[in-house]
Simulated scan of single mutants.
Amino acid sequence: MAPELWRRELADLRLEEKELTKAQDRLAAKRRRLPWIKVDRDYAFMGTDGPAGLADLFGDYAQLIVYHHMLKPNDPSPCEGCCMVADQMPHLSHLRARNTVLVFVSKAPIKEIEAFRAHMGWSVPWYETQDSFNTDFNVTSGFGLNVFYRDGTDIYRTYYTTGRGVETLGTVWTLLDLTPLGRQENWEDAPEGTPQTAPYQWWRRHDSYS
Rank of each mutant, 00 (worst) to 15 (best):
Y159F: 13
L54T: 00
A52Q: 12
N99F: 09
L57W: 01
D42G: 07
Y156N: 00
K72E: 13
W173P: 00
F104D: 00
T153L: 13
P76C: 09
Y61C: 08
D136Q: 12
C79A: 09
H119D: 06
D75L: 08
D151F: 10
L145K: 13
I110Q: 05
V103A: 06
T162I: 10
R41A: 09
Y43P: 04
S141I: 15
W126K: 11
F143R: 03
V66R: 01
E167T: 14
Y127S: 01
E112C: 02
E128V: 07
Q130D: 14
A55F: 02
S77G: 09
H68A: 04
G53E: 04
V85T: 06
Q88M: 10
V103F: 09
S93F: 14
G50N: 07
H69A: 03
W173M: 08
S106Y: 04
A62L: 11
V101C: 08
A55Y: 05
D49E: 12
G53Y: 07
K72S: 06
K111N: 14
E112N: 10
F133Q: 01
P125Q: 13
K111W: 12
Y61Q: 12
D136W: 15
V172M: 10
S141G: 14
D40Y: 01
E80W: 15
A115V: 06
L145W: 06
T48W: 09
K111H: 13
L145V: 10
E80H: 14
T100F: 05
F45V: 03
L71Y: 04
D40K: 05
Y127Q: 06
A52S: 15
V85F: 04
K38H: 00
H119Y: 12
D151Y: 08
M46Y: 08
Y127H: 09
G59F: 07
P90I: 07
Y67P: 03
A62Q: 11
G163H: 11
P109C: 11
D56Q: 03
R150S: 03
K72Y: 06
P125L: 15
H119C: 12
P51F: 08
L54Y: 01
T140N: 14
T171C: 08
Q63R: 15
R157G: 01
S77A: 14
A118P: 00
V39Y: 08
D131M: 11
D151W: 08
R41M: 10
V66K: 00
R157A: 02
G59A: 06
S77E: 07
T48E: 05
Y159T: 02
Y160S: 05
T129D: 00
G152H: 05
Y43V: 09
L71P: 03
F116I: 07
Q63V: 06
V66D: 00
G165V: 13
L95D: 07
L54E: 00
G50A: 09
N74Q: 09
E80A: 02
A52E: 11
E112H: 02
R96W: 08
M120I: 12
I65T: 14
Y159N: 04
H91Q: 14
P73C: 13
P90Y: 11
M89A: 05
L71S: 03
F133K: 03
A97R: 14
T129F: 10
D75E: 11
F148D: 00
K107W: 08
C82Y: 02
K72R: 15
A62C: 14
R41C: 07
H91Y: 11
Y43G: 02
